[in-house]
Design a protein around this nucleic acid. Sequence first.
DNA 1: TTTTTAGTTTAAGGTTGCTTAAAATCGCTT
DNA 2: AAGCGATTTTAAGCAACCTTAAACTAAAAA
Lengths: 219, 219
Amino acid sequence: MSVSVDNFLKNVYLLNQETGSPVTSSHLAGRLEISVAAVTDMARKLGAQGLLDYRPYKALTLMPAGKEVALKIVRKHRLWELFLYEVLKMDLMSVHEEAEKLEHHTSDDLMEHINRFLGHPDFDPHGDPIPGIGGRIPSEKGVVLLREIGEEEACIVAKLRYRNAETSEMYDRFGLKKGIRLKVVRMFPFDGSIEVEFPGGREVVLSEKLAQNIFCIKQ
Amino acid sequence: MSVSVDNFLKNVYLLNQETGSPVTSSHLAGRLEISVAAVTDMARKLGAQGLLDYRPYKALTLMPAGKEVALKIVRKHRLWELFLYEVLKMDLMSVHEEAEKLEHHTSDDLMEHINRFLGHPDFDPHGDPIPGIGGRIPSEKGVVLLREIGEEEACIVAKLRYRNAETSEMYDRFGLKKGIRLKVVRMFPFDGSIEVEFPGGREVVLSEKLAQNIFCIKQ
DNA sequence: TTTTTAGTTTAAGGTTGCTTAAAATCGCTT
DNA sequence: AAGCGATTTTAAGCAACCTTAAACTAAAAA
Ligand SMILES: [Mn+2]
Ligand SMILES: [Mn+2]
Ligand SMILES: [Mn+2]
Ligand SMILES: [Mn+2]
């Protein structure tokens, strides 16, 4: 299992989770920042190894063995993120980049030591569920997109999806953090933006694109 | 800086430290478990980059820039070893293999978080000094090979050099650990083996080859 | 149904880091 | 000084992973 294979399988899984739609070669190529031709190459190879269901011109789907690999990498990524954040007190903005490298170079044994040290946690610092050893994913029931909350209703931020360094910076600027309470003041159907009130009364308008990455639990 | 380059430079440094003699291509090839031809290739490449002083048929020596890289990797290796051992309570026998991978995928920032967490330590769990950021190496004055201790003299084990999984296992079997007190009972010039007494009175004969890796401080 | 076009595959080529085998060199021994 | 054996370099080639550019498909538009 090379770093390239790890990342390929992991991102087929994540892309499918995030978009809920079939994963195409060009979609994945964009995500991995490699050429579409390189994706085709790798896809054929992983198909031959029984990790991926690859058929020319069709969407990419994981076979059970490939999903297992993907979930293990996701587990390692999220455990590392939590460890770096909670134990080593690293900046929330940098844990993702570090975990992105460490996830490929961590034995199962080391990972379990970290898991034990953390007390078998269920969620990473962004609020994403940490898959278990058997592949079970902690339930996120009640967690919905911010846009699902009605006007004048309050909610607790449960998850801030990591997309890139820039989004992290925006979360920081706005003071968006897992666990804080938001009240939805108004929704603007025109551009999908959402006005929210922070604890203390500060009111802010969030763009649709940013709000797409904010999940919370109704209160 | 690739993993191959890291390992090349690190092992030129370590091999020179350990043997005190010039590092030849075949010597390094054996250590890295690659062919001598591969060493020549890489040496020429690193020579062109100003990291290594490479002249055909001559011994390999690090240039200042190369030594800096080497020391940084050694620092990361040893900090990781200590962290895995002291914080995560991993088996002393496995920390080396884990550190061998992590050392190449750890940012300076992450490393400093770990360094701070550990309280700026000077020695790794094997007793090896941890090079500082500026390249300064904590002094080991008073630390000598076990064979330098005279008969009937006592000493404290300061360093058990890691060579491979097998030596680690032998340390374990004999109960050899950093910090324990040994009394040298007898030296056998015939084969260089050394009889020592452990706390509690247990007496054991250590082969010359094993004793070569045991360092201690006279008491 | 034919054409267009977006998306995918194939083809050819580059880089890194390794291999084995042949050729060259060094330095010691006769 | 010549020869020999050990070491090192050179040469040729391979696998993994990537690239760009050309050829091909499939599915939507005309
Ligand atoms: Mn992440
Ligand atoms: Mn995360
Ligand atoms: Mn080590
Ligand atoms: Mn060590």
